[in-house]
Amino acid sequence: MPESDGGAPRQHVALSTSCLFLADPPETFRVASELGYDSVEVLVTHQRMTQLTHELLDASQQYQVPISAIHAPTLFFTQQVWGRPWTKIQMAAKMVEQTGAEVVVAHPPFAWQPKYGKSFVEGVRALSEMTGVKIAVENMYPWRLAGKELQMYRPHWDPRNFDYDWVTWDFSHASIAQVNSLEAIRELRPRLGHIHLTDGNDGGTSDEHLLPGHGQQPVAESLNFLADHGWDGVIGVEVNTRSAKDEDERASMLAESLAFARGHFRPGLGA
């Protein structure tokens, strides 16, 4: 991974495989290489190749783009991947060790996983200490049904009030939850382990994952703040490109997201 230059915070931007959701992982490495991304974040899904370290490393070597983050299969639609909840995070941590990545991204437990949820905070710390792998728990959001908010995550969708060593901050999730990301990031900075760079329209009910700057979250200001304070984590672009009419339009969306990160993660821009 790139080192900081002369004491300034490094600019390290990863392209998530989720941005090319139906494509085979090598396509993400190819696009990352062509557009100038620093690395790839692998979201482990039902796609077999996302689970196979040796094939991911082959793609990494072929396109000369390293792997910086492993997103454990803790999403709603990946509940059947890698079996039991703790197994998912353990295997993701092992994949981090094998690929040379920096961090595991994990969602908090669902409400229907009470036993897992009860031990989650302490269990994440214990697993991190045992493996030496940074495990960053992602902020989620309340689910809304007929105007009512449902608590669907345990111990909660907001990681700020829990004693996690590391947190991943996602701007789209913050948008749904109507949380000001700049305020949250100011609070979380000492334990902010990873960023999911995206955006959303505040208070919406869908997880939009808009291009940064296309929503209502203070994304630019948050990146300015982190750069000013020497944050040295990975900024993982995680945007929805399914509206792209073709490969060129998709590439344009991903290039714009990269340029946004490069342009706003610079010290001295204020925040």
Rank of each mutant, 00 (worst) to 15 (best):
M1S: 11
S4K: 06
A8N: 10
V13E: 00
T17I: 00
L20I: 05
L20F: 02
L22E: 15
P25I: 01
P26K: 00
T28C: 10
T28V: 04
F29D: 00
F29N: 02
F29M: 04
R30H: 08
V31D: 02
V31N: 00
A32L: 03
S33V: 02
E34I: 05
S39V: 02
S39P: 03
V40L: 02
E41Y: 01
E41D: 12
V42R: 01
V42Y: 06
V42F: 09
V44G: 03
R48H: 13
R48Y: 09
Q51K: 14
Q51E: 13
L52F: 12
T53H: 03
L57R: 14
D58S: 12
D58P: 00
D58C: 08
A59R: 01
A59W: 01
S60C: 08
Q61R: 14
Q62P: 06
Y63T: 01
Q64K: 11
V65F: 04
S68C: 09
H71G: 01
A72W: 02
P73F: 03
P73Q: 05
T74K: 01
F76N: 12
Q80L: 15
Q80G: 15
W82D: 00
R84E: 15
Q90D: 15
A92S: 09
A93E: 02
K94E: 15
V96R: 03
V96E: 05
V96L: 10
Q98D: 14
Q98G: 12
G100Q: 04
G100E: 06
E102Y: 10
E102R: 14
H107A: 13
H107R: 07
P108I: 00
P109Y: 09
G117P: 13
G117M: 03
K118N: 15
K118T: 14
E122V: 12
E122Y: 09
V124I: 15
A126F: 00
E129T: 09
M130P: 02
M130Q: 15
G132Y: 03
V133Q: 02
I135R: 04
A136I: 06
N139P: 03
P142W: 10
R144N: 07
E149C: 09
M152H: 06
H156A: 10
D158W: 11
N161A: 11
F162C: 10
F162I: 05
D163A: 13
V167I: 15
D170F: 01
D170M: 04
S172L: 05
S172P: 10
H173L: 01
I176Y: 07
I176P: 03
A177P: 05
A177C: 07
V179W: 08
N180F: 04
S181W: 03
E183T: 14
R186L: 07
E187P: 10
L188N: 09
R189F: 12
L192S: 10
G193E: 05
I195L: 15
G200N: 08
G200T: 04
D202A: 11
D207R: 01
E208C: 09
L210F: 05
L210C: 04
G215E: 06
G215I: 03
Q216Y: 01
Q217D: 09
P218I: 07
V219T: 14
V219G: 00
S222C: 09
F225V: 09
D228T: 05
G230N: 12
I235G: 02
G236E: 07
N240L: 08
D248R: 14
M253S: 07
L258I: 08
A259Q: 12
A259L: 11
R262S: 06
G263P: 10
L269W: 00
G270F: 06
